[in-house]
Design a binder for these strands. Structure first.
Lengths: 209, 209
DNA sequence: GTTTTTGAACTGACTGGTCAGTGCAAAAAT
DNA sequence: ATTTTTGCACTGACCAGTCAGTTCAAAAAC
């Protein structure tokens, strides 16, 4: 007998099941939190039996950890792509920042539940997946920090800015504004929200209109 | 905001017990989340018997709800005070915003656990205390929105800014930057962090140093 | 003497994780 | 071509443990 890996490269069926479980878990955990969400609920929402959850993931925590890695991976890739594209097109670092803001908004627009869950868990301590979360956070924030550093290096940004703090503040600005948008003004367009944040980034809030 | 108002039956002893329970609960829930924190843990950490918890609060949820109200009350008062003080001293609206950023940082510096817990719960849906949270959030954000509106009214801010979104973004900026500060660079001074955020607020990031 | 706290025992519902067994499609044997 | 075997993916009843909330007699604090 052949192992499944030799059987036309990793069973599609299993991957589909895992995807369904991710989607079910992300929604439920975003709404209720990790501990308040039961494995039975996840299984039911995904339309599989409880045993299937444990066939595909070692435990509830492991399911959640892999979900985090999966999601932040998507975000990081998207941010990186935005920065690189702007670079190729000969834009400055402000344009890169702006493009990343948009990429962030697009991501949150597409995966609001994941974003919610991420924010809710990020600053917790003493949890099993703490280290996973740190690694994954750093990957994402590092992209922003990188652009800021390059901007300082070629004189586009003041060399007095605090790269780490500024990066965190920018991420927070987008995160919270976007969650507010989705929660309280979901009818607004992405462009609209993007414009408001752009304005804030470029200091066009104070001063004449 | 500590005085138990002019209520006739407000025994001091009872109030002290409630305070101890708040403090125990805030830490534990910030670390582990609401569902993962047990009433037994809270009682133990507060140094009281489990029965005392139920003598003072109707349920675990009610304890948490009152905790939320209590905490956000402190923050709102602090923000309001900062805005009014700046006003009295004849500062402009930018100064008021700046003072509120500082007030926010001071608050988070003093009550990091509460802040963590607040952020973690804010965008959840389908929870018992959802409505409480909304009310309380709006109180706090409204202070920022108020200052922005006044600034627009007397021409200090562009009338093209989106008050609601900008307020949310500013709150997010401070929130996330401060949590990052506390989590990853706790040795930095508040002044330092404040300076970095001030710079960002006033658009002194891009452009010459 | 009234209010508040104690602390331990108890209940009943719920939950993460387990496991013996099922279904099925491809491979092997006939 | 047909029968048999293999093993992956999945199932769902079940178990052992946990936790919110209750009860209450007695002590302590006021």
């Amino acid at each position: 007998m052949e192992s499944s890996s030799a059987r036309s490269g990793g069973s599609t069926r299993r991957e589909a099941t895992r995807q369904k479980l991710y989607e079910a878990a992300v929604t439920l955990i975003a709404e209720q939190g990790f501990s308040a969400t039961t494995v039975d609920e996840i299984a039911e929402r995904a339309g599989v039996a409880k045993g299937t959850v444990y066939y595909n993931f070692a435990s509830k925590s492991v399911l959640f950890e892999e979900l985090l890695r999966h999601g932040v991976g998507l975000l990081t890739a998207s941010l990186r792509e935005a920065a690189e594209r702007t670079d190729r097109e000969g834009g400055g670092k402000v344009d890169a920042l702006d493009a990343m803001i948009r990429a962030g908004l697009v991501f949150i627009d597409r995966y609001p539940a994941f974003t919610q869950l991420y924010v809710a868990e990020l600053w917790r301590t003493n949890r099993a997946w703490q280290s996973t979360l740190m690694v994954v956070r750093q990957e994402a924030v590092a992209v922003v920090e990188g652009v800021l550093r390059e901007g300082v290096a070629d004189g586009e940004f003041s060399d007095e800015i605090d790269v780490q703090l500024t990066a965190a503040a920018l991420v927070g600005m987008v995160l919270v504004a976007a969650l507010d948008w989705k929660s309280f003004q979901p009818e607004r367009s992405l462009d609209d929200v993007h414009a408001a944040l752009s304005r804030l980034l470029q200091g066009r809030v104070s001063g004449r209109g």
